[in-house]
Design a binder for these strands. Sequence first.
DNA 1: CGGCATCCGGGAAGATACTG
DNA 2: CAGTATCTTCCCGGATGCCG
Lengths: 220, 220
Amino acid sequence: MKLEKVTSESRRRYDDACGTAHGLELIGERWALLIVRELMLGPRRFGDLRASLPGLSANVLTQRLEGLEAAGVVVRRRLPPPASVQVYDLTDWGREAEPVISELGRWAARSPGHDPTLPLSPVSMMLSFRTMFDAGKAGDARMTLGFRFGEETFVVEVADGALTARRGDTNGADVVVASPPEAVAAVVYGGGPVDGLAIEGRRAVFERFADFFELPAKAG
Amino acid sequence: MKLEKVTSESRRRYDDACGTAHGLELIGERWALLIVRELMLGPRRFGDLRASLPGLSANVLTQRLEGLEAAGVVVRRRLPPPASVQVYDLTDWGREAEPVISELGRWAARSPGHDPTLPLSPVSMMLSFRTMFDAGKAGDARMTLGFRFGEETFVVEVADGALTARRGDTNGADVVVASPPEAVAAVVYGGGPVDGLAIEGRRAVFERFADFFELPAKAG
DNA sequence: CGGCATCCGGGAAGATACTG
DNA sequence: CAGTATCTTCCCGGATGCCG
C-alpha cells in the first residue's frame, strides 16, 4: 500500500501526461499568460508590467515571474551600464507561445460576453493586429503605419500579404496614429468612424488598413 | 467621481478588452480547459469526467460545469428515455476551442519539464494524434485503425494526407490496438518497440502509423 | 450511482504598507 | 523603482451527507 505524501506542490499539479495539462502547469496560473503577452513584443521592466496589467498586485507579479523563470519561459536580465536596470524577457521558447495567445484570443472574440470597451494595453492592440489580419482582404497592399501610445511606439508593416508589428520608431511611416488603443480598436474592429482619431500623415492609408480586419461573428 | 464597488466577481476579472484575457475568464480557471478537452470527442457523463480527471473533486467539477454552461461553452442535456441520463456536451462554439488545446499542447510538449510517463486519458491520446500528425510523413497513406481502452473505442483514419479521430466501432479497422494510452504513447512518441502492445490485425499498419508522428525537440 | 449541497483546512490571490 | 511583509478574502480540494 503506497501512501503518497500529499505536498502542496503535488496537489497543484494535474498528474496528466497530456501536453495541454503540462502547458497549464507552466502558463495556466492566473495572470501568467497575460504577463507572457506583455513580454511578447520585447523586454519590459517590473513597473511596466504592473502598469500594463492593472489589477495585478506586486506580490503576485513577483511570484509569476519567479515561476515563469523557473519554467524556462522568462529570463531576467540586467541591461548593461549606464542603464543597469533589470528587465524581464521571454526565452526563444517562451516567444513561441504566441499561437496559444492568438488562438485563445481568436476563439474568445466570438464570445457573447466579450466586452471590447474595457481598457486595452498597447501590446494587446499590436498582437490583435497579428491575430486578426486578413491576408485576403489586404491583397497586395503595401504600407507602413506608426502607432504612438504615450511613450511606447510601434511600427506595423503590411507587405506581400503579411503583417508585421514590432516596437520601433514611427519615422518613415506613411501615417501615424496617436490615439489610445481603445479608440483605435473601436475603429478597426467596431467599424466606427476614423474622424475621432488623432492621425498624422496620410489618413487614407489608415482607413484602408482598418478594412483588413474583421471580428468574427458572435457564437450562440 | 465614480466609486466602483469591489465585488468578489469584479476582483476575479481581468478588466481587459484583449480577447485572450476574456478567454482566460471563460476557460482559464483550474481544470476548465481539461474538462473541455475531455468533451472534445463527444458528450460525457459526470462520472466519466471524474474518472478521466483524477484529482478533480466532485464539487469543483460541478462548479466548472456550471461556469462553462453559463459561458455558453457547455450544454447539459438529458438523453431520451430509456437512457434518461444526463450528459454534458460542448456547444458548437465550445468545440471550436480545439486549436487552443492543440497549440498549448504542442508548445508544452517542448518543455524540458514535461513528463510523458504520467497517466494519459483516452481522449488526450486521440487529440494528440490530431495535433502531432505530420502530413508530410504520411504522404498518400491510407489506413483505418481502431483503439480500445476498456469500454471506450475510437477509430482513426488516415487518408489524403489528413487524420481524423473519433469515437466509433473498431470493426472494419485494418488493425486494433488494445493497450492503455500510456503504452501507445510510449511507442508512437517515445519510439519504443511495438512488441509490448496488444495488437489485433495487421501489426505492420500500426508500425507505419507510428512513424507519422514525432515529438518536437525540447527547448532550452 | 449521479448530481449536488455543505463544512472544513490549507493555500493562493489581492490590497495595503513598508523597505532598500 | 523594484520589490518584500503582512493581512484578509476567497478558491481549491477532501470528506460527508442528502436525494432521486
